[in-house]
Amino acid sequence: MSDRTRFVFLHSSDELYGADRMLLEMVGALPEHTEAEVWLPTDLAHPERPLCVELERRGAAVRHLDLPIMRRAYQNPMGLVRLAVRSARLFRALRRGAPDVVYCTTSATFLGAPLARIARVPAVIGHLQEIWSKTDRQVLRGPALACHRLLAISEAVVASVPGRIALRTVVVPNGTPEPPRLVPIETHQGRLQFVVASRWNAWKGHRTLLAAWDRAKPAGHLTVLGGRPPSGEWVDVPGLVSALRDPSSVSVVGEVSDPSVYLEEADVVLMPSDEPEPFGLVAIEAFARGRPVVASAGGGLVDVVTDQVDGWLYPPGDVAALAAILGRLSRTEVTEAGHQARETYKSRFNTERFALSWRAATFGERSTG
Rank of each mutant, 00 (worst) to 15 (best):
M1G: 12
S2F: 11
S2T: 15
S2Y: 09
R6L: 13
S13C: 09
E15K: 10
Y17I: 12
Y17T: 15
V27W: 00
V27E: 03
P31R: 06
E32D: 13
T34W: 08
E37V: 11
E37N: 00
V38S: 06
T42D: 15
T42R: 14
L44P: 11
A45F: 06
P47E: 07
E48M: 07
L51V: 07
C52K: 15
V53K: 13
L55D: 06
L55C: 06
E56S: 11
R63V: 03
P68W: 00
M70F: 12
N76R: 10
G79H: 10
L80Y: 14
R82T: 14
R82A: 15
A88C: 14
L90E: 02
R92L: 13
L94N: 04
L94W: 00
L94H: 00
R95Q: 14
R96E: 15
V101D: 01
V101I: 15
V102L: 12
Y103S: 02
C104E: 08
C104G: 09
T105D: 15
T105K: 03
S107P: 04
F110D: 11
L115M: 07
A116E: 06
I118G: 02
V121M: 05
V124F: 01
V124C: 08
I125H: 00
I125G: 07
S133Q: 05
R137S: 12
R137T: 12
Q138M: 15
V139M: 02
R141F: 13
R149W: 03
R149S: 13
R149Y: 02
L151G: 08
A152I: 01
I153H: 00
E155T: 12
A156Q: 05
V157Y: 04
V157P: 06
V161M: 04
G163V: 10
R164F: 12
I165N: 05
R168A: 11
T169I: 03
T169S: 04
V171C: 08
P173Y: 09
G175A: 10
E186A: 05
T187W: 11
H188G: 14
F194W: 07
S198D: 04
R199H: 13
A202R: 14
K204W: 02
H206M: 11
T208D: 01
A211K: 09
A211M: 10
W213R: 03
D214M: 10
K217S: 14
L222M: 09
G227Q: 06
R228I: 15
S231M: 10
D236E: 07
G239L: 06
V241P: 07
S248N: 12
E255N: 14
S257P: 11
D258A: 11
Y262A: 09
E265I: 06
A266W: 02
L270A: 07
L270G: 00
D274I: 04
E275N: 12
E277G: 05
P278N: 00
L281P: 02
A283C: 13
E285D: 10
A286P: 06
V294I: 13
G300E: 01
D303M: 04
V304Y: 03
T306E: 15
V309G: 02
V309E: 15
G311Q: 02
W312P: 05
L313C: 10
Y314F: 14
G317Y: 02
V319P: 08
L326Q: 00
T332V: 09
E333Y: 00
T335N: 03
Q340Y: 03
E343T: 14
Y345G: 11
N350R: 13
N350G: 14
W358S: 03
T362S: 08
